[in-house]
Simulated assay, not measured.
Amino acid sequence: MVEIYYIDIEEEISGLDHDALLGICSREKRMEASRFRFEPDRKRAVYGEALARYMIAGKTGLSMNELIFDKNRYGKPYIRGQQRIFFNLSHSGRYVICGLDQEEIGIDLEEVKSMDLGIARKFFHANEYIYLLSREPEQRMDALFELWTLKESYIKYLGVGLQKPLDAFYFNLEGPSVELHSNDRIPAFIQSCTIKGGYKLAVCADSPGPIRVRQMAVKDIVSDIGRRGLQHMQK
């Protein structure tokens, strides 16, 4: 099962709770966050890594501080020394989201908002642009962001960044299930859905699914981090 947790960066928490999240992040991530000018960007950086460490530690039994994150040459994150646990992060608007699985995974989250369809004409496959034009005007933004998140999640699943152009493959959304046409490997599981607040979420994974999507309160994560830390000290 693909596990997906997301948290709201606008949730009000105390300074001590924020420090607890910061404390389980790597030194590099803390330095990266400090360089952002705006608080929401700092929160996305810290909350994303803290959420990933929390989820992975819960799955593997390792201490959150033991986990060493690294990136491949195209920027896809992985856990050094762990061959059977994979994760991927995304953020948009008020949410930070993390997907976790025992095989390769890519996820993308986007807040649906008004956008010029010209971006699809310029960057998407021609078949996808034709599909967008076939939708009723009030349906086009929803369809655009469904395609956008599917394409981003697939590129993140492959782990090749923008080395693979967005028009080099296409998704067909007109059948009973999503179809991907690509010369690269095809994930066993592809799904798009809408989460709280009208955000589009897409997942590409090598495991056959299904997915479990769950929103977590930041305060609950901090509380659990405290309990785990106490148990670790008592061992």
Rank of each mutant, 00 (worst) to 15 (best):
G48N: 10
L22V: 10
P77R: 09
G175V: 01
Q82S: 05
S114R: 12
R121E: 15
N65D: 11
I79G: 01
V203R: 02
K29Y: 12
L100Y: 03
Q163D: 05
Q102A: 04
L132F: 13
K29N: 06
A52F: 12
L230V: 12
L21C: 08
Q234H: 15
L51T: 09
A50V: 09
I130A: 10
N183K: 07
L158H: 00
A126I: 12
R227M: 07
N127C: 13
L230P: 01
D184Y: 01
S26F: 08
I24F: 05
I105V: 11
G15M: 13
D116Q: 03
I155M: 04
F189H: 06
R228M: 07
E146W: 02
I190S: 04
F86G: 00
L150A: 01
Q234G: 10
I4Q: 04
D41W: 10
C98Q: 04
R37C: 13
G161C: 02
A45F: 10
S192Y: 11
Q82G: 01
I130S: 07
G61L: 15
E10Q: 09
S34K: 14
I9Q: 06
E136N: 06
G226N: 14
K76Q: 04
I9V: 09
R214W: 02
K71N: 12
E138Y: 08
V112L: 06
Y157D: 00
P77M: 14
T149R: 01
Y170K: 01
M55Y: 07
F86Q: 00
I9N: 07
Y157W: 15
G159S: 00
G197M: 03
I85D: 00
M55S: 05
P165T: 00
I68S: 08
N183F: 06
Q231K: 08
V112G: 02
V203P: 03
G23I: 08
M233V: 15
K196C: 03
L180E: 00
Q139D: 14
S63Y: 12
I186A: 02
K219S: 15
H181L: 08
Y47F: 15
I79K: 02
G106W: 01
R35L: 14
V222C: 07
Y170C: 02
G209S: 09
E39T: 11
F189Y: 14
N172K: 05
C193G: 11
K113S: 11
S34N: 10
V218K: 07
K164Q: 06
I155K: 02
E3M: 11
A33F: 09
E103T: 00
P40H: 05
G58V: 13
G61Y: 10
